[in-house]
Structures are given as structure tokens and as C-alpha cells.
Design a binder for these strands. Structure first.
Length: 281
DNA sequence: AAGGGCACCTGCGAGC
DNA sequence: TGCTCGCAGGTGCCCT
């Protein structure tokens, strides 16, 4: 499910509801998601306060005031539902972990496919351990520009540029949807090898990634199936997709001019890629 | 050592 | 109505 814009939206919802608040209790309904919770999980979080909230790539990091941090990953189908006081919590299928806070907030982590996880780790170890020690630059910071992306792409010269964008060590937070949409916006064929991308094209691509991600965050993310914001409302960036899941439809850029291109679906590294073979060179 | 394939899971829509 | 198949916002391990 969730790529950077969805994770950012969820993180913001969590921050508003629980930053500074105390976890009064925690209920686990399964022993493990992708990663086991472990016997230290409940005692490790109970009674602590949420001291900080941030996003890194597709991960949410909640620093606790006891020297540990909760690392959240939503996998493909993870959702965070937040209930404020007066809005009573009703359990649903796949609510695997439920946190109760001192301000009356209830936070439920729901994940049908269980590809996500919540891990408790010493805060001091986060930066030096996987995946954060190998993670690429955040695409929305100023330092991420054409030259920075170009240098990163040179590290995977023989990989198709679309596949390289999915590598979290190249750019953090970009997933299948936003890789397709960014390449379309930059007019770059997803099958090009990373090593053939010229600096000027990397410049366009870096700019396209920023615009696509920022627009998606402003729209509250993209809701296809599982994803929702923490208050349960859907994101609406899916209405702005130009190519993702639009195979067989006319290319919106080509249709403006005289050429006729249809959006094509291919498979790269086992994932669907959507693009226009006419105007993505 | 980089890159391909596949496994991890559940649910949903299409097609028969 | 009900089956089977294919596919899904991700990641990581095991091969070559």
C-alpha cells in the first residue's frame, strides 16, 4: 500500500493525536506481524510517553521517553485507525495491536496481509542498523536535486531506472505508483538503464518526484483498496494518476498533441509498470 | 556482488 | 451463485 505520501499522512495523523501522550496500555491480538512483537514489547511501551514522531522513507519512528523507539511499517495493507474520546473504538478484523493513551485516544493497527510490523528498538541504534543505515536520501529535502539523483543512479547503472527508483537505498519512500507517475511526468522510459540517464534527465526526474510526492501528500495520499487516513477518510490522489492502472487508455500528454499513444502495462522485477511508449523516451 | 525469482499473507474482482 | 485465477501502495532471502 503505502508509499511516502501515505506514510507521511498517517504519521501526521498520529502526531496530532498522540505526541506527548502517555501509553497507558497496549493489547496485542497476534504474537507476530512480519516481525514478532516479542515478550518485551508490552512492558517496554506501557507507561512511556511519545516524545517525538517522524517519518523516514516508508517508516514511521515514534521516539519514546524511555530511550526506545517504536518503528512502524505499514507493509502493503497496514492501516492506523485513531479514535478520539467520544468516538468509541470498535474492533474490526485484523486489528492486531491496540494502544490506549492517557488523553483517551485509542490507536488500532490493522493489517490484513500482515506484511507490516511494529518494532521496539533502542533509539540510539536506529541510525546504524538496517534498514536506516542503507537508506537513500529523502526526496523532499533541498539536498535531493538532479546531481544527487544522478549520482545515486550511477550506483545501479545496469538496472532499469524504474526498478532503481524502487530500491530504498537509491531514494527513500518511492514505491510502485509514484515511480511510474514520476517517470511519466519527466518523460523518461522506465526501461532505460540507470547508467544511460543524462544529468539533465536526472534533474527533470528529481523535480518530477518532488512535485508528484508533494501533490500526493496534499491530497492525503492515494486510496486504492486498504489505505485510509487515520480518521478513516480516503486519500484522493488516485484521481490524479496519469498512467498507474490506466493501461489501454490514451496517454493524456499525447492526446494533447498530434501523436497517439496508449498507456501500456509491462512487468519489471515482478511489478507492474505503466507508461506511454510514445512520449517516454 | 548484483540482479532475478519467490515467499510472506489476505482479499477482491474478473471470468467461466 | 460459486469456483479458480491473477493481481495488489513492500521487503528480504536465497539462488545464480
Amino acid at each position: 500500500m503505502p508509499e511516502l505520501p501515505e506514510v507521511e499522512t498517517v504519521m501526521r495523523g498520529m502526531m496530532q493525536a498522540i505526541l506527548g501522550k502517555k501509553i497507558t496500555s497496549c493489547v496485542l491480538n497476534v504474537p507476530a506481524l512480519r516481525v514478532p512483537f516479542g515478550s518485551g514489547f508490552i512492558p517496554g511501551v506501557t507507561g512511556s510517553h511519545i516524545a517525538g514522531m517522524q517519518r523516514r522513507g516508508k517508516y514511521i519512528i515514534s521516539a519514546l521517553d524511555n530511550g526506545r523507539s517504536l518503528i512502524w511499517h505499514l507493509g502493503m495493507s497496514g492501516r492506523v485507525r485513531i479514535f478520539v474520546p467520544g468516538d468509541s473504538y470498535m474492533p474490526i478484523k485484523h486489528d492486531h495491536a491496540v494502544f490506549h493513551f492517557s488523553n483517551g485516544v485509542v490507536l488500532a493497527y490493522n493489517d490484513p496481509r500482515r506484511f507490516g510490523f511494529i518494532r521496539l528498538e533502542p533509539s540510539s541504534a536506529i541510525e546504524t542498523t538496517a534498514p536506516f543505515n542503507k537508506m537513500g536520501p529523502e526526496p523532499l529535502i533541498d539536498d535531493f536535486d538532479g546531481p544527487a539523483l544522478w549520482r545515486q543512479l550511477q550506483r545501479r547503472k545496469n538496472l532499469a531506472v524504474k526498478v532503481a527508483l524502487l530500491d530504498q537505498g537509491i531514494v527513500a519512500g518511492v514505491g510502485n505508483i509514484y515511480a511510474c507517475e514520476s517517470l511519466y511526468s519527466a518523460g523518461i522510459n522506465p526501461q532505460r538503464l540507470s547508467g544511460t540517464i543524462k544529468p539533465a534527465e536526472a534533474q527533470k526526474l528529481a523535480a518530477a518526484i518532488k512535485v508528484v510526492l508533494e501533490d500526493a501528500i496534499a491530497a492525503g495520499g492515494s486510496t486504492l483498496r486498504d489505505y485510509a487516513q487515520t480518521d478513516g477518510s480516503a486519500g484522493y490522489f488516485q484521481h490524479n494518476f496519469k498512467v498507474y492502472d490506466h493501461q489501454g487508455e490514451p496517454c493524456p500528454r499525447c492526446v494533447q498533441g498530434s501523436q497517439k499513444g496508449d498507456i501500456q502495462r509491462i512487468v519489471q522485477a515482478g511489478r507492474s509498470t505503466f507508461f506511454c511508449p510514445k512520449c517516454q523516451k
